[in-house]
Design a binder for these strands. Structure first.
Lengths: 230, 230
DNA sequence: CCAAAAGTGTTTTCGTTACACCCATGC
DNA sequence: GCATGGGTGTAACGAAAACACTTTTGG
């Protein structure tokens, strides 16, 4: 290592002492289906947490940028690319991981459930309703709660919830999504008004098809409103 | 290491490959003096960034919790304890640090300048006006900007700016602080009204002394409004 | 008495909420 | 024609912004 004096303990302790940490990322991947906010989870197969839900995560590779890891995991484990990602928090207690000193950086991802190209199974990777989860393996329940909180703050002011919907969607779907995120019902007229004022939507001049009622107009997210990437 | 199957690359790569990262923290320590928002910085002594400003930071010790490191640095390097800290973002590009794979977690700290018990000097540790800084060493300018942004969002809704003031303060000082943070002037009557509605203040029934004008009332932060710690 | 800042209310504007009726489509 | 959701406007309310004069103290 090059000599480097910004840090106070150089000289006292060697490389061996400091360069011994592993870095992981844990992903809170939100989706929207059946009128519910979902999170992509796996059933934990560690003895200590047998049967509990766990987030998708992996170690960051030695030659991989931190922000690249969540994209790789989404690609490898869920077959997803071009997704919304946002870093939320880094957890670094010495004893937080059974395998050694592993610090983990958590990310929120917002995806359209239908884009998943990996086969789901009840025991491995699957979507679980967020509001039904009361406990998880490791510290993942706390991570989920803080990410849900962050999601709520984010979608109030930033046009990111679109990532949870198909490219074309009706205002009813949009409202159902917001109601799922906030676990509350909203007034339809006020919701539409507030949403149009934000000017995030492009009117496609198309109508829903195959709905058993009067079809609603379809909209798309106005591109360029917000960067998609971390 | 215990066998651990949540991560995908176990078996392919050994401990040596993964447990080789160092973790540092960088602190954006805000203060308020002379009507200006300041940040505690050091002059960089690395050849590449000679003369540029750098944030206070250090490696996290092998047996130290991530959240404990910023407290230690504040204690050791600035003689400060019992301070407000908030984690902001983790930077982890492979090549972000000249000394090897070092990822860094950034924290905001809010302190009362007068509480510093360490001797300051122009070339080493010193307060620098935030709004006068146009560049810094490493990626520290970007870090400062994102922390300033976070500070602005935070003080709108949360009673944390008090940490930048003495225990007793006048509303004029409070307003001057907010004006320094947002780099904008506010209407005095509206500022007071909004502030009283928030109900963060305790009226001490005391007046300023030694001011060359009509003394204002002194207030203190109502304890219990918000947790102080990370 | 002058300078400097403290203290104080009202009006206007704007965004938010609450609320009800007719319309288009599928069955 | 009935069920389902689509689409629309207005009144009341509350928060935020604009705005000026009198008071208190020190010098």
């Amino acid at each position: 290592m090059k000599p480097y004096s910004r840090f106070s303990h150089y000289g006292e302790l060697s490389d061996k002492d400091y360069f011994r940490i592993a870095l992981s990322v844990d992903l809170v991947i939100f989706g929207f289906a059946d009128g519910e906010l979902k999170v992509l989870v796996i059933n934990c197969n560690i003895a200590e947490y047998k049967g509990k839900l766990s987030l998708l995560g992996d170690l960051v590779k030695p030659d991989e940028d931190l922000d690249a890891a969540p994209y790789r995991i989404l690609r490898e484990r869920a077959g997803l690319s071009d997704v919304y990602l946002e870093q939320v928090h880094t957890f670094g207690k010495v004893d937080r991981h059974p395998a050694g000193r592993v610090i983990t950086t958590t990310y929120i991802s917002l995806v359209n459930c239908k884009d998943l190209t990996i086969q789901l199974s009840e025991n491995d990777l699957h979507w679980h309703p967020v509001h039904a989860i009361k406990e998880m393996a490791f510290d993942h329940f706390a991570i989920l709660q803080s990410c849900l909180q962050r999601l709520r703050e984010k979608v109030e002011d930033h046009p990111v919830a679109f990532n949870l919907l198909p490219k074309k969607f009706s205002l009813r779907e949009m409202q159902a999504l917001y109601e799922a995120i906030f676990d509350t019902a909203f007034d339809r007229r006020n919701f539409r008004k507030k949403f149009f004022i934000k000017d995030w939507l492009e009117d496609l001049n198309e109508l829903e098809v195959d709905v058993p009622h009067r079809p609603g107009k379809l909209y798309a997210f106005k591109k360029g409103e917000e960067a998609l990437r971390v």
